[in-house]
């Protein structure tokens, strides 16, 4: 809901230079803000996951999770997202070394992997829809699409941020500390990945 906060964190240089290092705790305002935001996001996804867990068995005589899910497909897309966390780490490390070329390379790869994941999700959603499970069909379907949809939106926002960052870095328009900006996107990205780790297990793998 408040992904706007991310943008301030990504690019704010209100507090670089003397301010950040002069802060009384010695830590950066941006990073602290990002971690607070992620702490808050835990309660957002927690609520959506709980709603799903409560309603996953309630599909009347319609199709339920056990018949619907395509585990091999989801396993592959989960793997893709997981590996995008690795490429993200490589981007952050490259940015720390002030290696713009590799930073951009790994950011772009991360964005691509993310887009691949979103693509798989879109495919999955349409497939479910054709099997007669739409957003409004049952309590199960509403809560499934809401949860995974929210996650998908988070990934998409992440992809946009990654690609925007690539554009900004290659035009050399980064205002403030570049490495920190990349690290900030990284934190967001890993968090989205970690949420998927939970969703993958609780929603897909654990039998209802």
């Amino acid at each position: 809901m408040a992904d706007i906060a991310v943008h301030e964190s990504v690019t704010s240089h209100d507090d670089h230079g003397p301010a950040a290092h002069g802060s009384i705790t010695g830590i950066s305002n941006n990073k602290l803000a990002m971690w607070l935001f992620l702490g808050s996001e835990c309660l957002l996804f927690g609520g959506l996951i709980s709603t799903y867990m409560l309603y996953r068995g309630r599909h009347g005589s319609g199709v339920g999770p056990a018949q619907l899910f395509d585990i091999p497909l989801t396993s592959v897309s989960s793997f893709v997202l997981l590996m995008s966390s690795l490429t993200m780490v490589l981007a952050v490390n490259a940015a720390k070394r002030k290696d713009d070329r590799n930073t951009n390379l790994w950011l772009a790869v991360t964005g691509l992997l993310g887009a691949l994941f979103v693509g798989a999700q879109v495919y999955e959603f349409t497939a479910f829809y054709h099997e007669g499970v739409g957003f409004t069909t049952s309590l199960f379907s509403s809560s499934f699409f809401t949860l995974t949809g929210f996650h998908g939106v988070h990934v998409s926002i992440g992809v946009i941020m990654l690609l925007a960052m690539v554009a900004i870095i290659s035009r050399n328009k980064v205002a403030g500390d570049k490495a920190e900006a990349v690290e900030m996107i990284g934190l967001y990205w890993h968090f989205v990945d970690v949420v998927w780790v939970v969703i993958f297990t609780l929603v897909y793998l654990i039998p209802a």
């Binding site: 705790t25 830590i27 602290l32 971690w35 992620l38 702490g39 808050s40 835990c42 934190l187 970690v194």
Partner: peptide
Amino acid sequence: FMHLKFDNKLFSLMFYIGLGL
């Protein structure tokens, strides 16, 4: 990946409060 192990413990605290709650 998110460096909590290496970073300032204040970050961990903020995140774990949210996670725990």
